[in-house]
Structure formats: structure tokens, C-alpha cells
Nucleic acid binder design. Structure first.
Lengths: 352, 352
DNA sequence: CTGAAAGCGCTTACAG
DNA sequence: CTGAAAGCGCTTACAG
């Protein structure tokens, strides 16, 4: 089956290739009747424009690339816990691309200094994507951003830590979500609510803490310094934090761990120390990870609109809403739509 | 930053573009010294060949496409249980592609009759992938296979149900894995082992059943017809099957459910009926799903080498080991490497 | 509203 | 071992 080209369609429709091109790209200045003929000819021949030719001749490649940190992604993929968030981001971006005839290319890049510059450079040179979606930690990588800016490739930074110039910044409302979860615990009747912080290197960590503190303050509840436990977004750090909290003379009635992994650690620590959950103490997490749905007890947590986030990112790129010199206002880009998911790990205090 | 082309490199190295092309493609007939100069010039300029130009001029596109059923994939992605197997397939294929400078394009296609022909046709015409990886149910879709054969695109069918002509067939050893799990239960001391079958429309379902039956026969153990429960790979079907089994006068001491979802259903049914697991009855699953790791009790199950499967598929395509008229022998393509994962849901009989 | 010409950046087939 | 020419299948810029 020799492939059918624009010439075949033009011949069959009795027009020039330029007219076929106009029809295929929905450009104006074609008589309706002519448009009909061309469409019919294309359909009859099963014609679909060659992407490479289009990309080479024109200014669009119809490719959106999503950049992921190779080792981080491989770790997540291989890990026993799966990589729900990755899948959700991919799902969202894929949706937007599909709807517009774009193709999503997932690229894993090594963030080692010697490699990254070349890898990203090669990627941009070889693929010439119409847009790039950056995921953490790429979102804040100066080398990557520099290459993107120089090549004038539109890009979106997902969950950026810093207000670096260029690109569109899209961020989840970690602060608001944490505040609302805290408020929910307060509404359940808790007032002695502890907080386990995430890795301080991530902005989300600070935002979630701020949300917690704000909700406590707004409701006139004091926060004992001993309730603020450091953490690192890991199971073990959650385990340690809970052990500290459960040993307090005047222990809290609820723990808000700012990631599910840490919350699962809290569950384990409580079980080990003989505390019933939620009877003796409530535990809430953050992320709505797969594990949170299957833990015992299942975890009350926050579900962020990751699919929507990625969908917005891809859509903005596809629609050309992100000019190469775009520099979005970081205050205007928080995606609403988080949801509190109530499961078994929370209840009113003293409810056993 | 105007993009650097093959002409820029040729000029800088003082050679023709043909020589640069030879060096970039590691072709022979270039003096080592010349090769050096060209490489240096390319490195200095940060040159990377434009994929579109390469693809248009040459016979390779450096693109491998993996075809997934859109609705099935979206369901899995959206589902609460995640889509571990998808992620693992993607991981494997990505690895092989990366290693060879190829790009993996994930395409979701609608399997509705009116859409599929056009979608796949467009895909092949627009992208001209050097190879396509088919996942079930695409692996057995006649329309897809027909299009692939006509366009002479090399393809690999993952987990094919039927021996349709063309392509390379890669299949997991479901029969062997099920036999080995059955043998493991026998070795634990069980002799009254029930089996919950999967959806009969899938070949894996029959293969797993055959493995179970073979292991029982090999060990001289009779199989009571009442132990063979129908199922559909779903939680609910496992739940129903277990309820039937637990109600038997002379109930089995172990249930081998041929998917984790069904095994989780068995767990739930046992809990509801007041049976301890594994004290009263052992339960084994199949898949090593994320849920199997977090269930209570955690599930003994079979982990299939999905990453390796996808890695092999992509590697074969990338290496050109799958000529367009390839028609592999279905008996020679079973990927070894499954692993039995022992967790809390199995023990010796009467061990409570 | 329509089309002829040039060119995108490479590889192919061929000549030397 | 090296290179000049043609052409892959489109879009761009321009003319009519």
C-alpha cells in the first residue's frame, strides 16, 4: 500500500495541492463546493497528512512533550506503591492532545548536570515540540528553562517552586486544601490537631503547613509547638512523627499528615503503640494515593485535581495560549477543584 | 536561537552534508579523522538531526507507537484501583526506546467499529511509526491487524488470543504460573484446592485454569467439580464464588482465584462469613496488583514480568527483528520470569 | 477564491 | 573515502 499523498487527493478532486492543504487545515477561501469535493476525495483515499512533512514545512509539529525526571519516575513506576499521580497527569494531558489532533510524547530525562543540557537540547532540536509540560523537579530546573526560552518553545511549569521567568505556571491549591481539611477535623469536634510537615524543599510542604496554621488561627485554636512535627513525605518520617505525638503527655486527638505516605506511617505507629484509629486518634492524609484507599483503616485524605491540571496545561499549549515569552502571574494560576475524601481513619474525638 | 542544521555542521567541519549524515548515522566509509572533526563540530554547535526531516527523507521515523483501547484505558486510569499493569508496560517499552534513540507514542483508540479503521489509518499515515505494539484487545482486532499488514508496519501483539497471521506474538506464561502457584499451595499441605476462573473470553483465563488442573493431576489430587467456580475477573464474581465455596459441606482449604480482583472478593466474602484468612482458608490471587499489597490480609499472588514483556516487544521493533511479513510461532514466544509472591493470605491448612 | 514556485532538513541513489 | 543532485510531502509567501 503505497501511501497516499496530497497530490493523490488533488488529482482526484481536480484541484491544486494548495487547495487540498487549505481544506485539510480548515483555512478560509475555499468555495463550499470545492471543499466538499476535496473532503470526499480525501475520505475516499483514506488520506491523512504526513506529520513529518507538515512539521518540516510548517511551523507546527503537533507534538506536545511532557518532561519527567527519569530516575524519580522509574522509582515511582517500579515502587510497590505505584505512581498514581503520574498516571493522572498523563491522562489529563492525553485528553487535551487527543481532542486537538496533537500527540503527547512522554520523555524521561536524567537530571544529572552533565546529561541534562544535552538531553533536553537534543529533544528540542529533534522533536521541535509545539509545547512542553514540565513536572517537578524539571519545573524549576534552570538549565531546562534556559533551553526552552532560547528555543522559544512555549512551556508550562507544573507545581513550580520558584517564580522564575518564562512560561505558564500552574499550581494546585495546597494551602486552601490543607486549610479545608483542618477545618473539617475541627468541625468533627477536634481542637488538639497535630500536623506532620512534608519535605521542606518543596513549596507544597510549606503551603500545606500554612493552610493548617491559618485554619487553626481562624478558628481561634492554639497550636502547641510540640504538635508541629517535621517530616519528609515518607512513610518512615510519618511513623516517627506519630510516635512522638502519641508519647506526648497531653496528646492530640487528631493528626493531619500532609502526605498519604506519612499518614500511613502514622497508622502503623498507632497500631504498634496499641492506639485504635479513629477511636483513640484520627489520622488524615493528603494525595488520595492508591494506598490510601486500601489501607486499614482506609485513609481520609485530599484529592487534588491532577487530571484537570494536566488537561489545562496541555490545552493551553495546544491552543497557543502560551506564547514563547509568556510570563504568567503566579497568583492567578491555582487550579481549583480539590476534594476532601472522608474514609475510615477520622471520626469525632473520644468516639470509641 | 535559529536552529542549527546539517549545513551548519558541514560548513564548520569543512565537509559536505552527506559526510555529516554519515557520521550522525554511524555509517562506514568516513576517515576517522574526518569523523572526529564532524563530531566535534556537531557537539560545538549542539546539533541534533531534525526528526521530521529524517523521517520524511528516509525510511525510519524513530517512533514506536503503543496502541491502547481508549475506553478501557480511561476506565483503568480513572478507577480507584489504578492501572499498575499499564504503567509497567509503558515503563518497559520506554526503556527500550530510550536506549535506542526512539520515541514512544502512546495512542488511545476507540474500538467502536465506525471509528477504529479511520483512527488507526490516520495514525499510521500521519506518524508512520517504525513499529506498533498492540495491547489487548487491539492484539486481536482484525481491522487493526489488516491496516498494519497493508501498510507493512512491523508490529507486536501482546497477549494475543488467536493465532492470526502477521506480527510477532508475545505472551506470558499464564499456564506455567498458575501451575506453579497451585503446586505451592500443595506444598503448603493443601489438597482440597478450589479454583475461580476468569472471564472465559480471554485466553489467559483458560491457560490459568489449565495450569491449575495440570498441577492437581500431576500431584495425583482429584478435583471436585464444585471446586471449579466460574468468574469474570471482577471483585464481585470472586465474592460470589467464595460464598459458594465456603458454603460447601466439605469445603476446600484453599482458594486459588485467577485474578487479584477476584481474590479480593474472596477475602471480603470470607470476612463476611466469619472465616479467618489464612487460618480457616487460604486465598491466592494472580497479577500482583497494587491492591494485593495493601489488602488485609495482603495477598499471595503471581507477578508476571510485564516490564520485561514490553521491553522485549519494543526492543524487537527497534532492532528491526520484526519484518513486516513476520509471522511468529506462537509456541516460542512465552516470556519466562513470573514470580510467586507470598504474603499473608496463605498458610498451611488448619494452622489457626 | 485558487494555484505555481520555493523551500523546510534531511536521506537515497548514484557518480567519482 | 567523499560529494552533487534529486526528492520525501507538506506549508509558506506570493501572484493572480
Amino acid at each position: 500500500m503505497a501511501s497516499v499523498t496530497i497530490y493523490d487527493v488533488a488529482r482526484r478532486a481536480g484541484v491544486s495541492i494548495k487547495t487540498v492543504s487549505r481544506v485539510m487545515n480548515s483555512e478560509p477561501n475555499v468555495r463550499p463546493a470545492t471543499r466538499e469535493q476535496v473532503s470526499a476525495a480525501a475520505a475516499a483515499l483514506g488520506y491523512s497528512p504526513n506529520l513529518s512533512a507538515r512539521s518540516l514545512a510548517g511551523s507546527k509539529s503537533y507534538v506536545i512533550t511532557i518532561l519527567l525526571d527519569a530516575s524519580l519516575t522509574l522509582d515511582h513506576w517500579r515502587s510497590e506503591r505505584g505512581a498514581d499521580y503520574l498516571t493522572r497527569i498523563q491522562l489529563g494531558a492525553t485528553q487535551s492532545c487527543r481532542a486537538s489532533g496533537y500527540h503527547l510524547l512522554l520523555e524521561l530525562i536524567d537530571h544529572d548536570i552533565p546529561h541534562i543540557r544535552q538531553e533536553v537540547n537534543d529533544l528540542l532540536a529533534a522533536l521541535r515540540p509545539d509545547g512542553v509540560i514540565l513536572t517537578p523537579p524539571s519545573s524549576d530546573n534552570e538549565i531546562v528553562l534556559d533551553l526552552l526560552r532560547k528555543s522559544r518553545t512555549p512551556f508550562v511549569r507544573l507545581g513550580p517552586e520558584r517564580a522564575l521567568p518564562g512560561g505558564l505556571r500552574l499550581r494546585l491549591d495546597d494551602r486552601g486544601a490543607a486549610a479545608q481539611m483542618t477545618k473539617a477535623l475541627i468541625d468533627l469536634g477536634h481542637s488538639r490537631i497535630a500536623f506532620v510537615m512534608g519535605d521542606q524543599r518543596y513549596g507544597s510542604s510549606l503551603a500545606r503547613r500554612d493552610g493548617y496554621l491559618a485554619a487553626m488561627a481562624d478558628n481561634g485554636l492554639p497550636v502547641d509547638p510540640s504538635w508541629m512535627q517535621p517530616g519528609a513525605y515518607t512513610f518512615l518520617s510519618g511513623f516517627d512523627a506519630a510516635r512522638n505525638l502519641l508519647a506526648l503527655r497531653d496528646r492530640p486527638t487528631a493528626i493531619f499528615a500532609s502526605s498519604d505516605d506519612m499518614a500511613l506511617g502514622c497508622l502503623a505507629a498507632a497500631a504498634e503503640a496499641g492506639f485504635a484509629i479513629p477511636g483513640d486518634i484520627s489520622v488524615a492524609g493528603f494525595d488520595d494515593s492508591t494506598a490510601s484507599r486500601f489501607s486499614r483503616p482506609s485513609l481520609t485524605t485530599v484529592r487534588q485535581p491532577l487530571v484537570e491540571l494536566a488537561e489545562m496545561a496541555a490545552k493551553a499549549l495546544v491552543n497557543g495560549d502560551v506564547p514563547p515569552d509568556c510570563d504568567s502571574d503566579a497568583d492567578l494560576d491555582q487550579i481549583p477543584g480539590f476534594k476532601l475524601v472522608f474514609r475510615q481513619s477520622t471520626a469525632a474525638p473520644n468516639s470509641r
